[in-house]
Simulated scan of single mutants.
Amino acid sequence: MTPYLLQLILIGALVSCGVYMLLERNLTRMLLGLLLMSNGINLLILSAGGRAGNPPVYGRSSADGTTTADPLAQAMILTAIVITMGVAAFVLALTYRSYRLTTAEEVADDIEDTSISKAAEIADISDIDDADDIDEAAITHPDTDEPDELDALPGREGSR
């Protein structure tokens, strides 16, 4: 089994471009990166399957084939194609829903994640001499049982 250099370069280019596009903030580019990466991996599985040969059906042979082709690589690629199309449909649905809600295709930073990371940074600082060095907006208030604007259950106040 001798893989061709051009094929390996193509596989590397597809996977690297796919990873680069997956790291973008644009949902359409993320989808295209996912498709590019899956196509590169499918080519990798096909090249790892070995050389072409006789069909894997009993009693069949091709003109110049002396060995039987491995059907496992082809079955894995067909399965990977189906899974990729399912994931692509899911990402398209998420993109459509996100666009309908925010009219923007860019993925924004989550406010809650930002506040948690700022609170973790403050908790890691142990050698602060002045209390003025701490950002007051980054300190989270202790959790209480009082309802706030994020509570979505109606009638929760009357149950106490």
Rank of each mutant, 00 (worst) to 15 (best):
T66V: 13
P56S: 11
T2C: 04
R100E: 12
D127F: 10
T102W: 08
L6M: 06
A119W: 06
Y99D: 04
A80F: 08
S61F: 09
G53C: 06
D143H: 05
R97F: 10
D130E: 12
A120D: 09
A63Q: 12
S117Y: 03
A89C: 10
T68L: 14
T66F: 11
V91P: 01
D129G: 12
E157F: 10
L72R: 15
E24V: 05
A52Q: 12
I139Q: 06
L14A: 02
T84E: 14
L78R: 10
I128Y: 05
G49W: 06
A152K: 12
V15H: 00
L46Q: 06
E121Y: 07
G65F: 11
S47I: 12
D129C: 07
I81L: 15
I139P: 01
V15T: 04
L101E: 10
R100I: 03
G155Q: 01
A137R: 11
G155S: 01
D151E: 13
S98R: 12
L153G: 02
P71L: 02
T67D: 14
L43K: 00
V15L: 05
L72F: 15
G53N: 03
P56Y: 02
D143M: 07
A152Y: 11
A13T: 07
L150T: 15
V19H: 00
L153I: 14
T68Y: 09
S126G: 08
D110E: 13
L150D: 15
A13Q: 01
L72G: 13
F90K: 13
D70W: 03
M85N: 07
D110Q: 10
D110K: 08
I41N: 00
C17I: 11
I116C: 06
L14V: 00
M76F: 13
A104M: 08
I45P: 02
G59Y: 03
E121Q: 11
A119Y: 08
G155K: 02
L44F: 12
A13F: 06
T144C: 04
S159C: 03
A75F: 14
T103H: 10
H141C: 02
A93G: 11
G12K: 00
S98W: 10
L31V: 12
I128W: 04
S115V: 13
G50Q: 03
L23G: 05
D129W: 03
E106W: 07
P55C: 13
M37Q: 07
D143C: 09
A123E: 10
L92F: 13
T28D: 03
M85P: 00
T68V: 15
L5F: 09
M1I: 12
P56Q: 07
D133R: 02
D110C: 15
G50N: 06
L36E: 05
R51V: 15
G40N: 01
L92R: 06
